[in-house]
Nucleic acid binder design. Sequence first.
DNA 1: ATGGTAGGCCTCCTA
Length: 262
Amino acid sequence: MTFTLATWNINSVRLREGLVARLLRDEAPDVLCLQECKSPVDKIPTEQFRALGYNWMIARGQKGYNGVAILSRLPLTDAGSVDFADLGHARHVAARLENGVTVNCVYVPAGGDIPDREQNEKFGQKLDFLTQMRDSFRAEKPAKSILVGDLNIAPREDDVWNHKALLKIVSHTPVEVDQLNETREAGGWVDVTRANIPDGKLYSWWSYRAADWDAADKGRRLDHVWASADIAASGQGSRVLRDARGWEQPSDHAPVFATFDL
DNA sequence: ATGGTAGGCCTCCTA
């Protein structure tokens, strides 16, 4: 069985309902994981998605901030959620497919501007969130699992437009990169995107603040697709749909895709 | 070195 999965930080699912529908129509992933829905679950618009065959949604939400959802045209069951770092935020939800694969949709805290937990509480929360994820993987090794989402860290030198310039910028500091790698290794997760696309610059996010995001191309790879070691080899055909960053009234993130042949 | 844009909400928070 082959299925395609995409992950996208949508930055308000209500404002960008039309863009989600466009992605579902044009690219037709079997499963679409969304982050930053910025909506309570009962206010997520699902009619257009259902009309396109996406009859399942497992989500966690809150008013105004955060929020994660898994849309699917394959049957899903709710596999729970964890409040990593006890922030009271909707940043994780899991769903199970009929083939037994568990899909985790994660939105790691951005972490504020100052990369120092003494001066910036949000940075500490980001590190704590990752530490608790790591510990959960140590406690129970993931199997037949996929983890995707906006992890808000670009771990490799070629995951950012300028490695040196970003070493002190939250999302690419060594302490975050180490923490993310430790979290990934603790679960035996494989970075499927980079397994499929090992070489060259690769980004999934471009700031709204840059005048000409496409020409300047000062991007970062903040959005990730991981698979547990037992199914990682089945991950194929990864890609970033960069075009979506140029759609009308876009999210600042582009969707990341992977196909699994199980 | 700085400030730049965007979304949601209740006048400023977060990214």
